[in-house]
Simulated scan of single mutants.
Amino acid sequence: MSAPRGVSIPQAGDGLWDRAARAFSAWYDGRPEAMDELVTLLTPVLWQIARASRLDAEDAADAVQAAWLALVRRAHTISDPAAVAAWLITTVRREALRRARATRDVVLPDGMLEAAPAAGPGPDEQVVAHDEHRRLWAAVRTLTERCQELLRVVAFEEHPDYARISARLGMPVGSIGPTRARCLDKLRIALSAGPA
């Protein structure tokens, strides 16, 4: 296995890499305590690689942890124990770069995440809502001036005050409900006649 770009992996005979290979073999052969030695030997190297990707301490620790978890899950894919150091270095570098890209894509000041508003509707939902809004008001404009006025007043009041509406529009209180119903029927017809 070749060294990742910018990382010099010493040749066989170097104590650190040889001990890492032996620790990996021992762990893989069923001696769980050998993983402690492997972690002790290689974590400082992995940590430096993660930090070289300009990760903060927390993200660097997560990248190193992810590399160790990947090793446990995929140890069977390493056929040469001498390659374990290079495999871990490559894995932590990829994870660190992935995390660095993710933090570059979303840069929030400290504490901003807690203060961020809840996610709103997505772009597709916004387009649909805008189109529905546009179609509704285009249909309202096809109604008589009296219907438009009545529907505007009634639409924006949760509990319309018929006495106030009567005074504002100059309509008898008893005719507001039936007139509103006729106007809404006309609006429904105008909406259904328009493009879907």
Results as ranks from 00 to 15, higher is better:
M1S: 05
A3V: 08
P4Y: 11
R5L: 13
G6E: 09
V7C: 06
V7D: 11
S8V: 15
I9C: 09
I9H: 06
I9P: 07
Q11K: 14
A12E: 13
G13W: 07
G13N: 03
L16G: 06
D18E: 15
R19D: 15
A20Q: 11
A20G: 07
R22D: 11
F24G: 06
S25R: 15
S25E: 15
W27H: 05
D29I: 10
G30M: 02
A34H: 12
M35E: 08
M35C: 07
D36P: 06
E37S: 06
V39R: 05
L41T: 01
L42N: 03
T43Q: 14
P44A: 09
Q48T: 06
I49N: 02
A52W: 03
R54N: 15
D59K: 04
A60N: 00
Q65G: 09
Q65F: 01
A66C: 05
A67M: 06
R73G: 07
A75V: 00
H76P: 07
T77K: 02
I78D: 08
S79R: 11
P81C: 10
A85C: 02
I89N: 02
V92G: 00
E95M: 00
A96C: 01
L97S: 08
R98C: 00
R98D: 14
R101H: 07
R101V: 11
T103F: 12
R104V: 12
R104F: 07
D105G: 11
V106M: 12
V106Y: 12
L108P: 04
P109W: 12
D110Y: 10
M112C: 12
M112G: 13
L113H: 13
L113K: 11
A115T: 14
A116K: 06
A116L: 15
A116S: 13
P117H: 08
P117D: 01
P117C: 05
A118P: 10
A119G: 02
P121E: 10
G122V: 08
P123M: 06
E125Q: 13
V128K: 06
H130E: 14
H130K: 12
E132P: 05
E132N: 13
H133E: 10
R135W: 00
R135C: 10
R135T: 11
W137K: 09
A138P: 03
A139I: 13
A139W: 13
R141E: 11
T142K: 14
L143K: 07
T144D: 15
E145V: 15
C147D: 11
Q148C: 06
L150P: 02
L151K: 09
L151N: 02
R152V: 13
V153Q: 11
V153A: 09
V153N: 05
V154N: 08
A155S: 10
F156E: 03
H159W: 11
P160A: 00
P160Q: 03
D161E: 04
D161G: 01
Y162A: 04
Y162Q: 09
R164T: 11
S166L: 00
S166F: 01
A167G: 05
M171C: 10
V173M: 10
I176S: 09
T179G: 05
T179F: 03
R180Q: 07
A181Q: 08
C183R: 06
C183P: 03
L184M: 10
D185M: 10
L187M: 00
R188V: 01
S192R: 03
G194T: 00
A196L: 12
